[in-house]
């Protein structure tokens, strides 16, 4: 029964965050706009050669999602910090991981929607040919997004409440994301190129394993991070 109550709290927190976002669409719109802008900048940097663009598409897409996502993670705590609602949230009974899972769900939807738009634009801008193994590609993007959201939500819980919010989140988050991002980029790249080397499977295994490792570890550690 207690677990059922926890789930109810998770839903309440996720709903609260999503409602806040829905009421002020400006946040979401500007994050998506930033993601697309980064894609355009990559397009300039990589030059007009269509093949070069196609080869770099996987990396550019993931980096655009990463940079735009970082803004979303800090935002997800900012509302509560400004209104002092976090202290209230901590007063409620129930375990702390409930807050984390609620925020994870809200951020997943936020980043997931942003990712869909940015990837759709990226596919058009970078002239990507959709491979026949597109379901696998979608799975890779989903797994990569999970890793990104898990670590982003966790580190933002600290960074957004520290003095150097803007620099601290990327500094903590980006190196930790390397296993996830590298696996996601390499798997997407392999799949977009037809997976001639049969390496996508290994990258997906690594990606799934690190998703699980980081998810479990952050679920456990969140309590120590949010309480102080």
């Amino acid at each position: 029964m207690a677990f059922h109550d926890d789930l109810r709290r998770v839903r309440a927190i996720a709903w609260k965050d999503l409602t806040t976002e829905r009421r002020s669409k400006a946040g979401f719109n500007s994050v998506v706009a930033l993601g697309v802008t980064i894609l355009v900048l990559f397009g300039f940097a990589l030059g007009p050669d269509a093949q070069a663009l196609r080869d770099a598409a996987a990396g550019a897409l993931w980096l655009a999602v990463l940079f735009a996502g970082v803004l979303a993670f800090n935002r997800s705590y900012q509302v509560e910090l400004e209104s002092g609602a976090l202290d209230q949230l901590l007063q409620y009974p129930g375990p702390r991981w409930v807050i984390y899972v609620g925020k994870l769900i809200a951020n997943s939807l936020f980043v997931g929607l942003m990712l869909v738009i940015v990837v759709a634009v990226g596919i058009a801008l970078f002239q990507v040919r959709i491979p026949s193994a597109w379901p696998a590609l979608i799975a890779v993007f989903a797994l990569g997004a999970v890793g990104l959201v898990v670590l982003g939500t966790f580190y933002a819980a600290m960074a957004s409440r520290s003095r150097a919010r803007e620099v601290l989140l990327p500094l903590l988050l980006f190196p930790m994301l390397v296993p996830v991002l590298l696996a996601a980029i390499s798997a997407s790249k392999a799949l977009l190129g037809g997976d001639l080397m049969h390496e996508a499977g290994a990258w997906v295994k690594l990606l799934a394993a690190y998703d699980l490792i980081f998810m479990v570890a952050t679920l456990w550690a969140f309590e120590y991070v949010i309480e102080v």
Binding site: Y155, M158, S162, R163, L168, V225, V228
Partner: peptide, 19 residues
């Protein structure tokens, strides 16, 4: 860097332990 940016010892300890 995290340790340098957080003054409160309890917070610094728990955060950097998690990191």
């Amino acid at each position: 860097a995290l340790r340098a940016f957080v003054e409160d010892p309890q917070r610094r300890g728990q955060w950097s332990a998690a990191v």
